[in-house]
Amino acid sequence: MFKLLARLALAAAAVLPLAGQAQDAIKLGYAKCAHCTPLALTPANASNVKLEAIAFNTGNDVLTALLSKSIDVAQVTYLHYATALDKGFDVVAISGQINGGSQILVGNDLPLAENDWAGLKKLIADYKAQGKPFRVAASRGNAQDIHMRGAFAKQGIDINKDVQFINIPNPSDHVQALRRGEVELICSVDPFATQIREVKAAKFFTFPYDQAAGKLTNLIVTRSDVISGRAKGVEETVRSIIKVNKLMESDKAQFIDTIQKVTGLDKAIATGAAANLYPDYAMHRASAVAIAQMMRELKYINTDVSTAVEKNMDYRFLEAVTGQPKTALGY
Rank of each mutant, 00 (worst) to 15 (best):
A137W: 01
Y278R: 02
A253D: 15
D257F: 01
E182K: 14
D61W: 00
I256H: 00
F192S: 04
T263F: 07
S70D: 14
S287M: 08
H284P: 04
H80G: 03
I269D: 01
T77H: 06
D126A: 12
N48F: 13
T327V: 11
V175W: 04
A275Y: 00
D145G: 05
R180H: 09
A14T: 14
I241E: 07
F255P: 00
V49H: 00
L10W: 13
T327D: 13
A138W: 01
N45T: 05
L112D: 07
V62D: 01
A22F: 15
L110N: 05
A273C: 08
E198R: 12
K132H: 10
R197M: 15
S102M: 02
R140H: 13
V62F: 05
T64Q: 10
V199T: 15
K154P: 03
L41T: 07
Y315A: 04
T194D: 15
D158A: 12
P38V: 05
E297A: 14
I269G: 02
H284M: 11
A137H: 02
F56K: 13
A74P: 00
A55G: 08
R180E: 11
A275D: 12
Q260W: 08
A19I: 11
R180Q: 13
L185I: 12
A328C: 10
V91E: 00
I166P: 01
A308G: 06
G141D: 01
S68G: 02
T263Y: 07
F317S: 06
K50S: 11
M248W: 06
A31I: 04
T322R: 04
D225N: 13
G229K: 10
G88A: 09
V309W: 00
F89K: 15
K203F: 02
T263Q: 06
A286Y: 11
S47M: 05
K246L: 04
L8K: 05
R285Y: 09
T83F: 09
N160G: 11
Q254H: 10
G20Y: 14
